[in-house]
Simulated scan of single mutants.
Amino acid sequence: MAEPEPFDAEKVANLTLLQLRRVDERLTTLMEIVVRQDERLARVERDMGEIRRDIGEIRSEMVLMENRMLNQSQRVLNEVIRMQDHGVENHPAR
Rank of each mutant, 00 (worst) to 15 (best):
M1N: 10
A2P: 11
E3Y: 13
E3F: 12
P4V: 00
P6Y: 11
F7C: 01
K11N: 12
K11G: 06
K11R: 14
V12P: 00
V12M: 05
L15Q: 10
L15P: 01
L15A: 09
L17M: 13
L18W: 10
L18D: 12
L18H: 10
Q19L: 11
R21M: 06
R21G: 02
R21T: 04
R22Y: 09
V23E: 14
E25C: 08
L27N: 14
L27M: 15
T28R: 12
M31K: 15
M31N: 15
E32V: 00
E32F: 08
I33M: 06
I33Q: 12
V34P: 00
V35Y: 14
R36N: 10
Q37Y: 13
Q37F: 13
D38H: 15
D38A: 15
L41M: 15
L41E: 14
L41A: 14
A42N: 09
A42I: 02
R43K: 11
E45N: 11
E45Q: 13
R46E: 10
M48H: 11
G49V: 01
E50G: 02
E50T: 03
E50P: 01
I51F: 10
I51T: 09
I51V: 11
R53H: 05
R53S: 05
D54Q: 09
D54P: 02
I55F: 06
I55Q: 06
G56K: 01
E57Y: 08
I58R: 03
S60E: 15
S60H: 15
S60M: 13
M62Y: 04
V63L: 05
V63Q: 07
L64V: 03
M65I: 07
N67M: 04
R68W: 04
R68D: 11
M69K: 05
L70Y: 06
N71W: 03
N71C: 05
Q72V: 04
S73K: 04
V76T: 11
V76F: 10
V76Y: 12
E79P: 00
V80A: 06
V80E: 05
V80H: 03
V80Y: 04
V80C: 03
I81V: 12
R82G: 00
R82A: 08
M83H: 08
M83T: 03
Q84H: 09
Q84M: 05
Q84D: 09
D85T: 01
D85G: 01
D85M: 02
G87M: 00
V88N: 00
V88I: 06
E89Q: 05
N90C: 04
N90R: 08
H91G: 07
P92H: 15
P92L: 13
A93L: 08
R94N: 14
R94E: 15
R94F: 13
R94D: 14
R94T: 12
